[in-house]
Amino acid sequence: MTRTARLAILLVAVLLLGTIGAAAVLRAAERSGRRDQEQAGGPPVRTGAVSLRATAAHSRLLVRNLAWGPHRDEIATAPADRPNGPRTVSGVKCLRFHAAAGTGICLQAVHHALDDTYRAVVLDSHLRPRHAFPAAGIPTRARVSPSGRLVAWTVFVSGDSYAGTKFSTRTAIVDTRTWAIQDNLESFAVTKDGRPYRASDINIWGVTFADDHRFYATLASGGQTYLVRGDVTARTLTTLHRNVECPALSPDGSRIAYKKRVPGASPDAPWRLYVLNLRTMSETPTAEQRNIDDQALWTDNSTLLYALPGDYGSDLWTVPADGGGTARRLMASALAPAYLR
């Protein structure tokens, strides 16, 4: 065999081995990617345009995507009737998020060399920033009024959990037409049990809007929590019911879903999910028996949506609001939902 023939055979062998090696690497990468996706418990994730406008044909569910990968923490959308179908991610990262009528509120961390700061960003229907406000602490709650005009957010100024008593919150409301901000609802006049009330330990959190003037929230003072009805224009808060935290108003405005501290529960897991009838002030426990540390969302007038710890941070669960039925997991690896109808 000539020297030229031997070199040709060697070259073919090298190319063949290289092709086999490259194919093996690609197959391993594909298997690894599939395993990562399966471990995240989520569907395929793809990039694309995400809108905060509902369409006549399909309702959509928006969430903070918690599946592992380069798109973790991005706002994602999926069909409301197929929440575990493919997710379209937006590229916009939020710690807390909510949206309604083409307006979004996104609470973000701003990373610096020595520490992080936080901001509240109002988004347009294409998730583009309209206006940003500094946030005084760690984001925890966010809501948009049904018309999209008002946005609200709550942050922890000190502490990072509602379970204990050593925490302080700051809640703000912004009018997106004028950019006027109520940067601390603790400055509102409080009426408690029919009388004016003042105290140095008042905390307000968990706004849920009825319209562009009225809202509900939690007021804490003296070791007690209360459901309060608020008026943005009059700058007032009026107590309605005790032992209510993180209220969520039903679409028809008749009931409040909330987390309630129950006797005998662990101090680290004290809450169960209840529903309050605003006309009769009667309480109904839901069938969800686990600890709920979230501000629930109504999917319609009969069903509640809320977060529970999951393998990759949080999963979304639903339960009937009337106390019947059973809880079921709706969506894996997701947090901070909003429905576009």
Rank of each mutant, 00 (worst) to 15 (best):
S125H: 12
L95C: 02
G137E: 12
P263R: 14
S187L: 13
R195G: 00
L227M: 05
Y258H: 13
A338W: 00
P139F: 06
L107Y: 05
I105A: 06
N243R: 07
A67P: 00
R170E: 14
T299F: 05
T225S: 13
R261H: 06
D193A: 12
R31P: 01
S221D: 09
L52D: 03
A29H: 13
I138M: 14
D81E: 13
V50E: 05
T165Q: 12
R31C: 04
G230C: 08
H112E: 15
L185S: 05
T88D: 10
A199P: 00
E288C: 06
R27Q: 12
A142H: 03
P247G: 03
P267C: 07
L249V: 03
A80I: 01
L62R: 02
H98E: 08
D175E: 14
L15I: 06
T176W: 08
T2W: 07
S90Y: 00
C246A: 10
L305S: 03
G18S: 11
P309L: 09
Q37Y: 10
R329G: 05
G18H: 02
P309T: 07
E30L: 14
R329N: 11
A67S: 10
A296E: 03
A332T: 11
K93C: 01
D124G: 08
N65P: 00
V144R: 04
H213D: 15
G91L: 07
A234Q: 15
P44T: 11
L278S: 05
A76M: 05
L278W: 04
Y216V: 06
N277K: 04
P44Y: 08
A269P: 01
G48I: 05
P134I: 09
T4L: 14
L308R: 10
I202Y: 00
E283Q: 12
P43H: 13
L305K: 01
N184V: 08
T238G: 06
T303L: 12
T169N: 09
R87N: 10
V121R: 09
A24Q: 11
T303G: 10
S221T: 14
